[in-house]
Design a protein around this nucleic acid. Structure first.
Lengths: 353, 353
DNA sequence: ATATTACATGCAATCGTTTGCATAAAAATG
DNA sequence: CATTTTTATGCAAACGATTGCATGTAATAT
């Protein structure tokens, strides 16, 4: 059986209180004799005692756990984020529990229920939701709660994300500067914060440059690679295909690359490519992928800092932190002239049929 | 405050037992009148009741949680594994808690302590350890426990991994068949199961082909990308550099690629490359990377199946499952003749200086 | 010698659930 | 109408830890 304080108490002849104080109470308030301490510690070791954190959490109404929910652990962006959050939390002496909502609001809901059931001391969520009704309850309860990456402007809650609008502006302005005007956007899940803000940046970059928006070039519906693959295939089949594609996420761009390869499209010669997110492998592709980098370490640090602050001062006003994105220019974009543009179109039509 | 059964009991006038039975007891043994049920359920909803799983776990001595420990969440191989484990566990009605040991045995130890403290019902571990002394205790305790990916031949415990020896054989035999004889191996953390078995496969492939082993071509010391980068740089500086490199993991190969790019080494023309693990981006690189694929979904399924079986029949004999690896041949390996080999060496020496 | 303080330890309530057993009332049976 | 059975609900003891308060003894001060 699993050893408890009681077992140790019986074996040593001391009371449970004394054993508890020796083994766990760092406050040093009650003076226990050296001899007793030694004896108790030794039997604890002999019996392989391990504290039951369920019991402790129940008694203390504190678990020292933070719940984290992300849409997709296997997405490099989120797995990097998790690692950074873990490192930050460890500094503060907190453990954490991750849930993967699998880009599914139903799973996200049940993850929240489950975490609240575990009485975590705080919550960090990158929500997949297109609205925040299910989060309202959390915020109204006492539990400290911060949103990361995916947040809602209209929802007054601590949150940290990258300036998505600016990120898209950087990417699309760069493409425009290189002579592109038919620029497609393969988006992620419509209605999500990350997607809508990125889309907004895309649109205003075009409008600012006096380029009218072609709705046929705004395609896609989730953040997975299959979406990138399918939409790229379709874009290439257009009678007037884009000369550049801007993708809303790192998995999407992988799909796009696969489609290009299948269609013998060489990047950047036949098609330029820029993506949001800058996964570890972006610079190892050839051509190396130009990408909008999110300051993921800083995001994690800020999220934990906000959470920590909220735990200490529950009534501070809520803050929304926007971090600066950065465009990493590599070699997946080519400069085009009008002439090249036309040649490109002809070539593309030939190869895709 | 957080609502408890007691609050609902007081509000409705029924006892805590009745409330508990209405809200949680599916067994239907005690007949509670429809009217009572409705009233209780309604107030539970009104008060925003959520079960406290700490209390339940304490009482039931069961948490319905499985602890999972991996060396590096941000490694695509492990994040894929986690996702698959999650999916499998959900089917069985289990939750899970992941820990990232950060390739660090000290953190692994504390993760184990923490999970056992949470009284998880089972444990799935991909250990970073070079020995299994710290795992012996777990096995000897009652908790069901399976090792995945990284196991120990001499440790009698349920485990599932890919046949690493065979995987290396596949890769190295393929390189040999393509005419390579100076094949380097950039390894991961020495002493770990995954590394030693992969190394063993590498060596026996060479020996079987009558190629003597050059210890200067066996380099590296962990599974991270920096290791791949540094060792590749050094290998390229050798007076007699390898014509092919076989890397022990997907992060290592990324580092190798970076080093090659910096030295203007074109793959596969100047250097052939094969890696263990087949990350999602392998086929998107150009050239697409030839890689040894691990059946990660099957591994996850097997691990959960073994765990589940152990939970039901604690005294079954322990099993070690070895799954088949698969070599995915893409375009990162070139066929070489002796003549090309010499040209290659000369060229490499020029470029690296 | 007595009063006071310090020291070392124990008592018992509490955290929120679950559940075997008890019980009272209602219904069914003879 | 008396007895048995069924129905609907409550009591109270766990589960394992924490901790304010109490207590008995030893050391020190007066």
């Amino acid at each position: 059986m699993i050893t408890t304080l009681k077992d140790i108490a019986e074996k040593t002849g001391f009371s449970i209180s004394t054993v508890s104080r020796v083994l766990h109470d760092k406050s040093n308030k009650s003076k226990i004799s050296e001899e007793t301490q030694l004896k108790i510690k030794q039997t604890a070791k002999d019996l392989g005692y391990r504290i039951n954190t369920l019991a402790r959490g129940l008694r203390l109404q504190k678990t020292h756990e933070i719940g984290v929910i992300v849409p997709d652990i296997s997405n490099p962006f989120f797995s990097a984020m998790i690692k950074n959050i873990a490192t930050e939390l460890r500094k503060h002496g907190y453990n954490f529990i991750v849930y993967d909502s699998d880009e599914n609001i139903v799973i996200e809901r049940s993850a929240i229920t489950s975490l609240l059931g575990k009485r975590v001391d705080g919550l960090i969520i990158a929500s997949v939701g297109q609205d925040f009704s299910h989060l309202q309850k959390i915020r109204n309860s006492e539990i400290p709660f911060v949103m990361i990456d995916r947040c809602f402007d209209a929802f007054d809650v601590d949150s940290v994300s990258v300036d998505n609008v600016k990120g898209s502006l950087l990417a699309v302005n760069y493409l425009i500067k290189e002579g592109h005007s038919r620029i497609a956007f393969i988006q992620g899940l419509p209605g999500t914060y990350a997607n809508e803000t990125r889309l907004q940046g895309y649109k205003s970059a075009l409008l600012d440059a006096g380029i009218s928006i072609d709705e046929r070039l705004i395609v896609g519906d989730d953040f997975r690679s299959l979406n990138g693959y399918l939409e790229t295939k379709l874009l290439l089949k257009l009678s007037n295909p884009p000369t550049a594609i801007f993708t809303a996420g790192d998995l999407i761009v992988l799909g796009a690359l696969e489609a290009c390869r299948e269609n013998n499209i060489t990047i950047p010669r036949d098609l330029s490519l820029v993506t949001f997110d800058d996964p570890i492998f972006a610079s190892y592709l050839s051509p190396a992928l130009s990408a909008v980098e999110q300051p993921v370490t800083k995001m994690a640090e800020m999220a934990v800092a906000l959470l920590y602050r909220r735990m200490k001062n529950p009534n501070d006003e809520r803050r929304k932190v926007l971090l600066e994105p950065k465009l990493n220019i590599r070699s997946s974009v080519t400069r085009i002239s009008m002439l090249m543009n036309i040649k490109h179109i002809i070539k593309t039509e030939n190869t895709t049929e």
